[in-house]
Write a protein that binds this DNA or RNA. Structure first.
Lengths: 380, 380
DNA sequence: CCATCTTCCTTCGAAATCGAAGACAAAGCG
DNA sequence: CGCTTTGTCTTCGATTTCGAAGGAAGATGG
């Protein structure tokens, strides 16, 4: 069965292994170009990595005018990563190889209101189940990561003042999980993980805003190819004041927050008041697809409001792309009205090359992002 | 007289020289800690740098319990940097040593509306005059940099769609200056330079928003200690829509831009309409200090509007500090109302450790920033 | 089919870097 | 005053990395 052991690679080796793992390099020559090391040094280190069993040589790649490269791949026995994305009412679990490719992904219902101990113990048990069922024998677990639907201090791995996670405030999530797995443990906000996951699907973009439109509104920010955390709470856009006719109080104590009008929760509330039941964000999407005019109107309005907020941020951050994910992202009117608002009001200089698109990573983006960050943590 | 020659230091030497130049290290031991090199390697390279005449050993520092370090300093003959900050009606010039310390700073009137060739030739001539008058004999010029009051593509050194620089669109500024000086030439937006300059005065802050409140409103963004440019136009906040009762059209074609209400130009316009003459932003500050109620009210309103825009950006970027500079930054009601708006409306998590302060670098911040960026360019 | 080009990878001596050990120089303390 | 502690800097052999040269293996093109 799968053991748990720390991965030990020192110095240049880890850089090379990382480049192969994330798919940036497939041959010694590419490794030399990307790592900046001399070709001879690369050969030496690669030989060692093959000796350790972490890399394998597998056939040859396609020639580009000269000798064909000997293709390098991560050994399938190099290790596994256990990742999770915790939501309010369900969690997604994944078992990935070190390259971030999923062996299995599963969604299970849960309830974070039961508190951190119970939820995290359940999470650990679920990881063990997945490992038993799907982990190839003899392949060790290398690290554990989870996304949390609230603010996280990544240094300590604690939850910080979450708005919808009763009992979780200041709970040391990383420490608690670390008691189950004596391995690197990574805890991060869910929108941030989603941003990291999307960033891998948008390699041409250095600066990215990733919007998570679900029952809440979250945003992850990639600056210079790396996750931007600020002092820990960067990416929050849900409590921005929007321009509306009416006036609604938000749970944060301020009037007219974006979240009070444009979040999935707000839309579900508004629909219910109109006598149209909607219990989950996907119900809202279904109503829109069924052509229920009230739903479409509400979603369009939400898109306009989100778009107006993004306007400010696009001028300011000047990103390469805005990526929209989350369960509401399949509602086409939402995307359309966000696009309209941004393109109408932003500076031409900022929108000239701006792409506004839906997620490439799909519902698994956060899990893939968790794998990506975790790989960095594992490769000391 | 001062020659012009390229600085040639290779590999590890340039890192060490940079650490001494920016004042992060004063001894071999500190260099070893900060550079990550082994102490022995540092000794070797430092010996070489002293041999080249770029570093000098000067007395000894204060002991912290052990042997006193031998203090390293940049040689006064190591070189000079010529920097400028071009404004609409005046330009500031500076001659700095490689550590960024000014030998002389001068302000001269000019008019950028005369077009790029004339202005830049005048700038080059001014540099030569300063060098003749203040440059120590035998100390070579190492690089040239200037700030531009409009968008700049830093890669090509061209001006891009400036709003208030007739005749400058797409002009290759760096290339033109390079014809006068066969040296590294750096061209950058003025607010960005100011941000870099301030960042050196706020070493404890990794993420910084630097507001330039003058006749226009600009903003430079420091993320992870480095200037964030986005696709080239990052930091623009002047064309954000603000919430007001009246409605004013901005030159950009959209209604109610921040710039139309809160820029120095807008304030001067509004005061003139009230029969109170104000020809420069500093006039506005003077009126406020004289207790002219109309001026104070207008400035307070401007601060509130700016603050409301910053609200969104603070939640999103979660910076360590907001630094306010530019000629309006001496108007205390402006700072006060910006502070009030931000602290009132932002998330507690984002403002808990947020500092909102006026410039530490003063009117020379942009020149110091130019020196800082230029040093990086000069140290290949 | 054979010469030539391109790309990939390895070999091997030179150069840079490291790290352990020790010399050096002060502060703190009895 | 001598001892210990702390911190700085150098010496020197071991390790790592580099870079030039060349071999390997295929593409290209007459």
């Amino acid at each position: 069965m799968s053991g748990k052991e720390r991965l030990l690679v020192r110095g240049a080796q880890s850089d090379l292994l990382r480049l192969v793992a994330i798919g940036h390099a497939e041959s010694r020559a590419q490794l030399a170009r990307l790592s900046g090391l001399a070709a001879s040094s690369v050969s030496l280190r690669v030989e060692e990595l093959i000796g350790t069993g972490l890399l394998v040589e597998e056939g040859s790649g396609t020639s580009s005018g000269g000798r064909r490269p000997r293709r390098l791949r991560l050994s399938p026995t190099a290790g596994l990563l256990a990742v999770a994305d915790l939501g309010a009412h369900h969690a997604r679990f994944g078992l990935l190889d070190l390259s971030g490719t999923p062996l299995v992904i599963e969604e299970r219902p849960c309830d974070i209101a039961r508190g951190p101990e119970e939820t995290l113990d359940w999470m650990a048990a679920s990881f063990e189940e997945l490992l038993l069922a799907y982990g190839p024998p003899g392949v060790p677990l290398r690290g554990v990561a989870t996304g949390i639907p609230g603010p996280v201090d990544p240094a300590s791995g604690r939850v910080v003042s979450p708005s919808r996670m009763p009992g979780w405030n200041n709970f040391p999530v990383a420490e608690h999980l670390g008691a189950h797995f004596d391995l690197p443990v990574l805890v991060e906000n869910d929108a941030n993980l989603m941003a990291v996951g999307e960033a891998r699907s948008w390699p041409e973009c250095d600066n990215l805003m990733v919007l998570k439109a679900g029952s809440g509104i979250g945003c992850g920010v990639i600056v210079g190819g790396r996750l931007h955390r600020g002092r820990g709470s960067a990416g929050d856009i849900s409590h921005v004041r929007v321009r509306t006719d009416s006036s609604t109080m938000c749970s944060c104590g301020h009037p007219d927050c974006l979240e009070a009008y444009a979040s999935g929760a707000a839309l579900m509330g508004a629909l219910s008041e109109l006598g149209i039941p909607a219990r989950r964000p996907s119900d809202v999407v279904a109503l829109v697809e069924d052509g229920v005019p009230e739903a479409t109107a509400l979603v369009r309005n939400a898109g306009r409001l989100i778009g107006e907020v993004l306007t400010v941020l696009v001028n300011f951050l000047n990103p390469d792309a805005i990526v929209i994910g989350g369960s509401l992202s399949t509602a086409e009117p939402l995307i359309a009205s966000i696009r309209a608002a941004v393109y109408e009001r932003c500076l031409p200089l900022a929108t000239r090359d701006l792409e506004i698109a839906v997620t490439r990573g799909g519902p698994d983006a956060a899990l893939l992002g968790a794998g990506s960050l975790l790989l960095d943590a594992v490769l000391s």
